[in-house]
Nucleic acid binder design. Structure first.
Lengths: 346, 346
DNA sequence: GGTGTTTTGAGGTACGCAACTCATTTTGAG
DNA sequence: CTCAAAATGAGTTGCGTACCTCAAAACACC
């Protein structure tokens, strides 16, 4: 009836006794310090595993003494999504300081590979961990790898550099996000046939390109009655996105769906309503004050969202776990693709 | 350019010095121990607030000595959702034991108020915290309140007792979940008119009743072309649910939507396919091995899900924060209503 | 002013581990 | 067997807090 998880009340002393060595030797093994015969290492490790011994994290943290420093390298300039991440980190401040963790925000131009790489190099060995919104570029990759080699834990945030040796990626699978958007547009169009518009920031951005890829995949395979128009590149700007879309709407009377891949939402929504095309199925990304309002008004039909609060906290937790040598709770740190509609607005 | 969150490296000694008292007095104030003049209490508290002092959680935990015990009171019998919660707790075992936390699962008949209440009373003061899948009933409420009065932290899990003095509820807003299901059925039906069927476990269950309420709300206000048929009560059993639905499908040729509120999914899906009615929009709850398969096959169109892993971890974190007197990260512990479709299957 | 009570100070111990020193033992090569 | 190098034992100190004791000081009351 009662099933107990965990238990261990063992200490290092117990492990030492079981392995028939002294505390000092256990300490050497535990921290891969030199000067222990391979044979002895094995004996100690066996004792540790046999008892599923876990060092008391509180004791370890206390004994360690110095505080940990993490850096968050984020895009400069006004970006609501990034501002939300900052805000959520701010809400954690009591949590952070109770654990003697220092988190510093470093704003830089993450879209310029050399600037970003330089920012990363400048961090050197000052930090125990770094979370970075990383552009996928050889120079950035090299900078990330250098950090890793220097012993810094590195987590990519929102945007990944898969080819680097970063320890972890905190963000969503953008192809799957695009597929989800496609499925929503297709399903919500309800069998109507016609055209579908795509507004993106730029096809050069990896995340936007991946989303479009996923979107097209689904449209092609599952909704033959819908044909996708060429992508409009609005550079994530309201005005430009709005103008491009307005022109497109004027040319095609049979547009039934719209996928807004990035920002520029304000302009897109305005173009739609100016043209009186509120029947168009409109799917976009992220829950902001604006998209929330559009969803409630019925202008937007669904938003694909990655929870910025979750991403901020996950990045901190992953960096901390890596620094402590604790296992990462993969399931917990995985960022889900949220479908947000009017009735499940968070 | 670099903006630093947190910092504090202050210790109790610093607070004592600033307040002009001894360590012992600070300790008395911090733990509301008696024997301190109100005036002195104020001075100390001011010093604490002025410095935004946070006790070092690791030091506190270590000094405390004894381990913490939490109990999870969960339904007995085979229940995939609950089994998932157990499984996720199991995955945390290293995390738990590194913090010297003991979590015990206690299986009981949570649907019988007196049995559940008795199980809760039996816990008495043995546990620092209790998470319970709580039936909303006066006797259960009394048992919960008794636990709270005895100094145990109580969290309701999945199913709430709002009128009790439990410290926290970890679960979703079921009315909103029902509304979301309604919006999905309505939107995915794509303007077709016809009837909509509802299969529930029982309307006596609070969560099911709330979901149905939310579902009907949306259907009535937003989808006048759809009419909702009387609720079928399948008691969460495959056979019964399947038979009831099969009969209903036979009587109504114009059913275009189906909302499965609880379990019995296997039976529901079978009835649908046996009747060859795979065009029916089918929305259900929870991501299990079965619903995952049905989504991939296109039999189910969407699943409303509350992440069981998140719920398990949130319950533990909340209990721990409550026990330590730490603030709860509300945003983090809030359980979202996930819409899961084929392409964003986790 | 004396009495008893309340408030405060001073100090100690313990928690489990990290990180270090130094002496001692073991090992292997010559 | 000798000797240096490697391996190990034994021990110390400190991290910041909880929790405890005991004595001293301040206070209230008659």
């Amino acid at each position: 009836m009662a099933d107990t998880l965990t238990a261990t009340a063992l200490t290092l002393k117990d492990i030492a006794r079981q392995a028939g060595v002294s505390l000092a030797t256990v300490d050497r093994v535990l921290h891969n310090r030199p000067g222990v015969r391979p044979d002895t290492v094995r004996r100690v490790q066996e004792a540790i595993e046999r008892n599923a011994f876990q060092p008391h994290v509180a004791a370890a943290e206390l004994a360690r003494g110095r505080a940990r420093r993490f850096a968050f390298v984020m895009p400069s300039g006004p970006n609501p999504f990034m501002q939300q991440i900052e805000a959520y980190l701010g809400e954690m401040s009591a949590w952070l300081s109770a654990r003697r963790l220092n988190v510093e925000m470093i704003a830089t131009d993450v879209f310029d590979p050399s600037v970003l790489a330089a920012s990363l190099e400048a961090l050197s060995a000052d930090y125990d961990g770094v979370a970075v919104v990383a552009l996928d570029h050889p120079r950035v990759r090299a900078a990330v790898n250098d950090l890793v080699d220097a012993g810094t834990r590195v987590v990519t945030l929102v945007s990944d550099v898969p080819s680097s040796r970063r320890h972890h990626y905190v963000g969503i699978d953008n192809i799957a996000a695009g597929r989800t958007a496609g499925a929503l547009v297709g399903r919500l169009a309800g069998g109507r046939s016609g055209k579908v518009a795509i507004v993106a920031g730029s096809q050069g951005l990896r995340d936007h390109a991946e989303r479009i890829f996923g979107f097209n995949q689904v449209m092609a395979s599952e909704f033959p009655e819908l044909s996708v128009l060429p992508v409009l590149e609005g550079r994530d700007e309201d005005d430009r996105s709005g103008q491009l879309l307005a022109r497109l709407l004027g040319r095609h009377a049979d547009i039934v769906g719209l996928y807004n891949v990035g920002a520029g939402t304000q302009g897109v929504a305005k173009a739609l309503s100016d043209a009186g095309r509120d029947k168009v199925v409109f799917v976009g990304h992220d829950v902001t004050a604006l998209t929330r309002r559009l969803l409630l008004q019925g202008v937007m039909d669904a938003a694909i969202s990655q929870n910025p609060g979750h991403e901020a906290r996950a990045a901190v937790r992953v960096l901390l776990a890596l620094a402590r040598g604790e296992p990462i709770l993969r399931e917990q740190e995985k960022i889900r693709i949220d479908i947000v509609m009017r009735d499940n607005l968070p």
